[in-house]
Simulated assay, not measured.
Amino acid sequence: MEEQRLSSPLIRVVDDDKSVRVALLDLFKSIDLNAIAYDSPRALLEADDLDTPGCIVLDVRFSGTSGLDFQSDLQQAGNRMPIIVVTGHGDIPMSVRAMKAGAIDFLTKPFREQDLIDAVTGAIKRDELIRAESQGRSNIEKLWESLTPREVEVMRAVVNGYMNKQIAGQLGISMVTVKLHRSNVMKKMRARSVADLVKKAEFLAQK
């Protein structure tokens, strides 16, 4: 394992060619990007929990395993870190498979340094968005869990477009009680409007 610096975001280079690893670390260092390199997918998994934001620059061929196997393992584990596949001239079909399996880009060796920089920059931004979305969903789930069963019923009715009078009739409660529950829902869900509440409900539906 070779490393440049270990602050976020972090680029993980996975390649069994030491000269490639060193060259890429030097490249990323020259433009002030943090990177660390591993000689195999197994080495990465043993040393890195992938909690630090960033991306993976992955060669597809290794002895005993393949980059595609590694990519599949990450997917099965629910890890959505962006992967940039790097391939030799004879590995184009494998790269196509990698793209279909979720890799965000692939480069054929030898590649232009700027192409790799552009791919990595885009991957890091994508990872930041993925993590922000995940954190946002987690926060919404916590708000949802604070609702009482009755407030959950009222929220579902509100986001489905029912008026207070209709909700009262459906749930067999008074209009005053509906308004009270509705107010509590808006406060607990930190919703600025019904439209905002609907958006949060859509987040919850994506679980």
Rank of each mutant, 00 (worst) to 15 (best):
M175P: 01
E202D: 12
N160H: 06
V96M: 09
Q170N: 08
L45G: 02
A23S: 13
D49E: 03
V176H: 05
S66F: 05
A132R: 03
L129Y: 03
E133C: 00
Q114R: 03
S174L: 15
G161E: 00
K29R: 15
R156L: 09
F111A: 11
S40C: 01
E133K: 03
G169S: 06
K100R: 05
I124T: 03
M81T: 06
G172Q: 10
V14P: 05
G136I: 01
P82C: 10
S40D: 07
V176A: 10
F70M: 00
A101C: 00
E153H: 07
V13Q: 15
K207Y: 14
L33P: 09
L25S: 12
S8R: 14
S138Y: 05
M1F: 12
S174C: 10
M1G: 13
D15R: 02
K179Q: 13
L50E: 05
M1P: 08
F203T: 06
D17E: 02
L116D: 05
A35C: 13
L45H: 12
A77Y: 01
R5S: 09
R42P: 02
Q170E: 06
K125T: 09
N79S: 01
G172V: 03
S7L: 15
L25G: 07
E145L: 11
A168F: 05
S7M: 11
S7V: 11
Q206S: 13
L68N: 01
A132W: 03
A77D: 04
D49L: 06
R192I: 03
Y162A: 08
A103K: 09
Q71K: 10
F62V: 01
S40K: 04
D32S: 15
Q114T: 11
R192K: 07
C55W: 02
G122E: 13
I104W: 04
I130R: 04
A98T: 08
A77N: 04
N79E: 05
G54L: 12
P9V: 07
F62D: 01
L33H: 14
S193E: 11
K179H: 06
S7K: 15
R112G: 03
R182V: 10
D51Q: 10
L147H: 11
I124H: 04
D73G: 09
D196F: 01
T52P: 07
Q206C: 05
E141L: 12
K207V: 11
R80L: 01
G102R: 11
F70V: 01
G54Q: 08
Q166T: 09
A132D: 03
D196H: 12
M186G: 10
R192W: 02
A132G: 00
F106M: 10
S8T: 15
S19R: 14
V152Y: 05
R150T: 10
M99D: 03
A101Q: 13
I84D: 08
I167E: 04
M81D: 12
V14H: 10
F111C: 12
A157T: 00
F111N: 09
P110C: 02
G169H: 01
V60G: 05
A132E: 00
M186N: 12
L68C: 06
V57E: 13
M189F: 09
V154M: 04
